[in-house]
């Protein structure tokens, strides 16, 4: 699955890094606690979150994640978008809630991946 596929499945708005939509993703995680992402996630390449602050971008950067999806229609601010562009991490925003967004991706073949 690519970042573009995720955007299509979730009917998501692509906020930045359109050049990276072809990047492949193999596993995902959904969390609002970045502490838990840092502690429990391993090799998941897309982060779905309802949290919307710059540390979401930082956390994804530290974890080498490929893409971030904001659920429930959340939109990142300029500062976050700038950070994501610097790190080349595409940001998507979907109106779906967390459970539905995760379910849509899961039922289309994206799984949770290894636990850490």
């Amino acid at each position: 699955m690519t970042v573009k596929d995720i955007a299509t499945l979730l009917d998501a708005k692509i906020i930045c890094c359109e050049d990276s939509l072809g990047r492949e993703l193999h596993a995902a995680c959904g969390a609002d606690m970045m502490s838990d992402v840092l502690a429990f996630v391993k090799d998941q390449s897309v982060l779905l979150t309802g949290l919307c602050n710059p540390q979401v971008i930082r956390t994804a950067e530290m974890m080498d994640m490929v893409c971030i999806v904001f659920v429930r229609g959340k939109l990142p601010d300029e500062n976050m978008i700038e950070l994501a562009i610097e790190r080349n991490i595409p940001l998507l925003s979907t109106k779906h809630r967390m459970f539905t967004a995760c379910g849509l991706l899961y039922s289309n073949g994206l799984h949770g991946g290894a636990t850490n």
């Binding site: 502490s35 840092l38 502690a39 540390q55 979401v56």
Partner: peptide
């Protein structure tokens, strides 16, 4: 701090890990 996504009590254990 929890509302910012941190403070789950995983910081120091994760640093050790």
């Amino acid at each position: 701090i929890r509302s910012l996504g941190f403070g789950a009590g995983m910081g120091l254990p994760n640093m050790k890990k």
